[in-house]
């Protein structure tokens, strides 16, 4: 599914992650919520690969003095679905939320390493989070429609951004893309809270794509849904990745197998800090993983 010209380093898999590496000299911890450790440009030259959307190098996260995640090095490719799998508490969601700076409001949050989005350092001073989130949309674990009408839920963000021309068409387009249009077209003025859980989640996806982001981050989008709703969300991910780059966190390995082109397996390292164990094409991760820990996890022999 990827262009055949993918440079080999784009798919590198940091299988050696785990041993407690010495903290990089770039590491800086911040205490205040407003100031971030500024990630310096890497010493390695930035090799722009046309299809790499996110490039994380040695990314780590700390909350106050507590390290949550470290040694995350991976590239996320355009128009692919990338799944983050792994046991609870290993930092999948933390890393996902770093990608659109949703962790910023958490007190003590600090990020080190380098996290680039199309070559731009996401955490450089002066980067506008609002702009980041406008391009990198997010759908949360629990459906969180606004207590407004279905139409207003989808139209809210476009209105904020001044996309007021053809708002009706835009809303319809987004709802169609989220495979919700046929179910709600007759009750657009009804409250979004009257929808079922699966419909609410698809509404949240519609809401996110209404502003035509570049990337969609999905944080366990189906974990609160029944199997039928889950299937419709998975189908949706399949359709959406032709237009958007998708990163999906999931607890469900079958789900990762079904929807993802690449899969990153996260786990705790020997110091109980979340880290990336293995990252590769999904079929490789599930058929011949390089790391013993990945093998144990996918065969259910974890822990």
């Amino acid at each position: 599914m990827t262009p055949s010209g993918t440079p080999p380093e784009a798919a590198r898999s940091p299988t050696q992650a785990g041993p407690a590496t010495t903290p990089s000299p770039r590491l800086r911890l911040s205490s205040g919520a407003a100031s971030y450790p500024v990630s310096q440009a890497s010493d390695r030259p930035w090799r722009p690969a046309a299809d790499v959307v996110f490039c994380a190098e040695e990314v780590g996260v700390s909350y106050g003095a507590k390290r949550a995640v470290r040694n995350i090095t991976l590239d996320i490719h355009r128009n692919e679905a990338t799944a983050f799998i792994g046991p609870s508490g290993c930092g999948k969601t933390t890393v996902l939320r770093c990608l659109n700076r949703m962790n910023d409001s958490i007190p003590g949050f600090g990020l080190y390493g380098s996290l680039r989005y199309h070559g731009h350092d996401l955490y450089a001073p002066g980067v506008n989070r609002v702009e980041v989130r406008r391009r990198i949309g997010m759908v949360f674990q629990k459906p969180n429609p606004f207590p407004k009408s279905i139409f207003d839920n989808v139209a809210w963000a476009p209105r904020n951004l001044g996309m007021k021309a053809d708002l009706d068409e835009r809303v319809e387009r987004a709802l169609r893309a989220a495979a919700l249009w046929d179910e709600v077209k007759d009750r657009l003025k009804a409250s979004a809270l009257g929808l079922s859980g699966g419909q609410q989640q698809r509404l949240c996806i519609a809401r996110a794509i209404a502003i035509e982001p570049d990337v969609l981050l999905l944080d366990e989008p189906a974990s609160a849904l029944d199997p039928i709703a889950t299937a419709s969300i998975e189908e949706l991910v399949h359709d959406l990745k032709t237009r958007y780059t998708i990163v999906i966190v999931t607890h469900n390995m079958q789900q990762a197998m079904r929807v993802a082109d690449r899969t990153a397996f996260f786990s705790l390292d020997r110091d109980q800090i979340g880290t990336l164990i293995e990252y590769d094409r999904t079929e490789r991760i599930f058929s011949q993983p390089a790391d013993q820990r990945t093998r144990d996890y996918i065969t259910g022999r974890f822990g």
Partner: peptide, 21 residues
Amino acid sequence: PRELRDGAEALGATRWEMIRG
């Protein structure tokens, strides 16, 4: 709920838009 505020911010809303909306 925090989820509502996060939801608004994840849509590229400014703080004022989040508070108002």
